[in-house]
Design a protein around this nucleic acid. Structure first.
Lengths: 351, 351
DNA sequence: GTGAAAGCGCTAACAG
DNA sequence: CTGTTAGCGCTTTCAC
């Protein structure tokens, strides 16, 4: 086959064809007002004729702006982060930027490596979910950054966007209360996880604000997986069947596990036990019953992250922390508690 | 003596500090053998001292290689494509390349737009899942491309990697046969979708090879969504309860929908009806029972795509079509058919 | 309005 | 081995 390997045309080529200088071409291409209408037409015609496309590299090198944005997340294959990426992607595309996506795999070393790569690629800025206590890596980044996810609170000097866990938890607890479940059992992560601490702090505050003694709450521990949720639910069922009437899980995977356990125990959801999840993963829609859950605004986080970053890059913004609302997605895993008495008794008794 | 400390250091800065010329610095940095051990040390020391990091843009502009790879997929938020991206990501990282990921949203226009953006970014090559009959767009791309996904067969002149649908379908049908289900009902997409045609062709060939009259197969149509799968299953149950003993869905979402329908109809899976899916989406693990499915090698497709592309870029490879094997993931949705007779009768009768 | 010229930071001949 | 000299393709003064 005949392979025409002509190099791509440059502004010099089109300058020649249009019979002008390359600076004139540059002006025409950048929409400068200091150029004659007729000249511009001639240049544009040549551009079309040669199929010219601007070399981004040269443009970036000279102008100092690459139109590249870095996105560092734990795992692109994780539905939540994929949604975040999708949002960032959309927002980036809308502003003509391209996204360089990297997975840190929760590894501080990889994160540092990626940050370095982004700096070398001369990205205009980056959106990152800081993985571990990589304060140094981020502090030295030297480029506009916006943090996403909840670990952002460890870097108070950087702009960030995340979901409003407090609002989400309150939303869930309020909704449960409206179904007459006032003391749901809690399925949370292991004590050393920051997420667990944060979740519990919010629950604690809510209880204080609603005249509930936090000490009366029944808590089971899992590790954010389906299997751990299943095991935790089984334990709960054995330990305190009455408290198990209603369960609020700190993430959907554990909630789904709890659902499995309920069925295994010969009980039914929501008739025997109500389950509320937290996250809003797609799989929650396919269980039976569908899992009612507090949905984090994943895509919006990506979109808003890009907006914050854009403002940061333009210097319009000194610092901001954006918290996006979670929303309740009702499916079938919650029922009204028609038998409140025993639950109350249990809560008091287990004190 | 103009020392600009506010900007990132360049090789000129480090040349000054090390007391050599910038070409020597470049040589030291690129690990050239034509340089003295002592000089190299001196340069490297200066590099560390100034915290120098090579400017990728300038490097790329000069060398003609950007180390950028484009990935164009329909949707990064779709679990399957997210996995593909993850694989490509890993392979790219391993070879020091960065990925520019774009979502085409199944829109030929957006795809064309992204292809243009990639060309302008001077990526070294691209991996794309061609969306529509965008033959022109791809033909004119002018850069090394590797196609992924099954629509690749429309571009026989380009290298591609995809899952071996024929092998996957045969795997499923064989497995069902081993459970004594010889004529599963088929839940497929709508007739105008390429995927449906491909799926059915493979089933057809399999039947011919196994002395089964394809015309005796019971087929229901959906549109690759949970809801459509549910509706299709309900129809099937009403139309031909006996054929509904075993269902092979063309994708997991429809299979999950079928599962819902079975339960709604007061039947149980797998005891009353066995269901086999196709895809291997994560959600298939959380249903009850877990969905047994034919899993496409999503991540491997990404990895292999990157490898193929690398070879294509290096010119080592003229053309190749790689088909990766699907695998059976057994969960609980399949049971042995202990009552073969009626099924056979039904198949013949419905002819 | 338009052109000439000077780089952005780096690589790659070609001399010494 | 090392320095000198050209650029890669584009933007951007600064003259005219």
């Amino acid at each position: 086959m005949t392979t025409r390997r002509n190099k791509q045309p440059t502004i010099i080529d089109i300058a020649e064809v249009a019979g002008v200088s390359k600076s004139t071409v540059a002006r025409a291409l950048s929409g400068s007002p200091h150029i004659g209408e007729k000249t511009r037409e001639r240049v544009l015609t040549a551009v079309r004729a040669l199929g010219y496309e601007r070399n981004h590299l040269a443009h970036s090198l000279r102008s100092g702006k690459t139109g590249l944005i870095g996105l560092v997340i734990p795992d692109i294959a994780n539905p939540f982060w994929a949604e975040v990426a999708r949002g960032a992607q959309d927002a980036a595309a809308a502003s003509g930027a391209s996204l360089l996506i990297f997975s840190s795999d929760w590894d501080p070393e990889r994160e540092a490596h990626h940050l370095r790569a982004l700096r070398q690629a001369r990205v205009d800025g980056a959106i990152v979910n800081p993985v571990a206590d990589n304060v140094d890596g981020l502090g030295r980044f030297g480029l506009p950054v916006v943090l996403i996810g909840s670990s952002a609170e460890r870097f108070p000097e950087l702009s960030s966007v995340g979901s409003d866990i407090a609002q989400g938890v309150a939303l869930g607890l309020d909704h449960l209360a409206s179904l007459d479940h006032h003391r749901p059992a809690l399925l949370v992560g292991s004590a050393n996880r920051l997420a667990r601490v944060r979740f519990m702090r919010v629950v604690h505050d809510y209880c204080i604000g609603h005249d509930i003694d936090p000490a009366t709450l029944v808590i089971e521990e899992g590790s954010y997986t389906v299997e751990s949720g299943r095991a935790a639910m089984l334990r709960l069922l054995e330990r305190d069947p009455k408290a198990a009437r209603c369960v609020f899980a700190a993430n959907d995977l554990m909630a789904l596990g709890a659902l499995l356990a309920v069925r295994e125990a010969g009980l039914r959801c929501p008739n025997d036990v109500s389950i509320l999840g937290f996250d809003g993963i797609p799989a929650a829609a396919f269980s039976d019953p569908g899992l009612t859950t507090i949905e984090k605004p994943a895509r919006a986080i990506g979109v808003e992250g890009m907006h914050l970053l854009a403002e940061t890059i333009e210097g319009k913004l000194e610092h901001r922390r954006v918290l996006l609302d979670c929303a309740l997605t009702s499916r079938g895993s919650l029922a009204h508690n028609s038998d409140l008495g025993p639950t109350r008794l249990m809560a008091v008794g287990s004190n």
